[in-house]
Amino acid sequence: MEWFISALHHWALPFISLLGIGIGGWAVGMRAMTIHEMESDYINYSKRLGFSRKKLRSYAERNAILPNFTWVPITLNALIGQTLLVEYVFGYRGLGKLFYKAAINQDYPLLEAGFVTTLLLVLVGNFVADILYGKLDPRIASGYVREK
């Protein structure tokens, strides 16, 4: 139990430093898009029809999350780069420290392998985000259907 508490203690600051940047930007973007959606024509029309405020807000939030979800792959790419920096700053053994030592020692094969690994992580993340985007927005999931 003592090891777990020590690990949690040393993990908290790097986690908060990575989380703060991502959540802050996403929250501001979500707020701006929700305000934009609340002023749109379909919300005004629904108000006149007598929809409750809670129902209107749920419609606005559902449409506001789509542009924010588009930023998920970009955020994932930035998070990988930030993680490498945070690993080096906090002295964790990981890809960040490995990349730094490889660059200092001019170990080009190791740098190339590290970049390929990072590239694969980014590609898999982008693929998963595209699949989830299709699940989130059914209009995109339907795709193109060939006529016979």
Rank of each mutant, 00 (worst) to 15 (best):
W3E: 12
A7G: 03
A7K: 09
H10V: 03
F15W: 07
I16R: 08
G20I: 07
I21E: 05
I23L: 14
G24P: 06
G24V: 10
G25H: 02
G29L: 11
R31H: 06
R31P: 03
I35D: 03
I35Y: 00
E37C: 08
E37Y: 00
E39F: 03
S40P: 01
D41W: 10
Y42L: 02
N44L: 15
Y45A: 14
K47W: 01
K47Y: 00
R48L: 12
R48Q: 08
F51W: 00
F51G: 02
F51M: 11
S52H: 04
K54M: 14
K55M: 15
K55E: 13
L56I: 11
S58Q: 14
E61I: 15
I65D: 06
P67M: 13
N68C: 11
F69G: 06
N77H: 10
N77Y: 03
L79R: 02
L79C: 09
T83K: 09
L84G: 09
L85V: 13
E87A: 04
E87W: 00
Y88A: 03
F90M: 03
G91T: 00
G94L: 02
G96A: 04
L98S: 05
L98W: 02
F99Q: 02
F99G: 00
Y100C: 01
Y100T: 05
K101W: 05
A103N: 11
N105M: 13
N105S: 13
D107C: 07
Y108P: 01
L110I: 11
A113M: 08
G114I: 05
L120A: 15
L121A: 15
V122P: 01
G125F: 02
G125E: 04
F127E: 07
V128W: 01
A129E: 02
D130F: 05
L132K: 04
K135F: 15
S142L: 11
G143S: 11
Y144M: 07
Y144H: 08
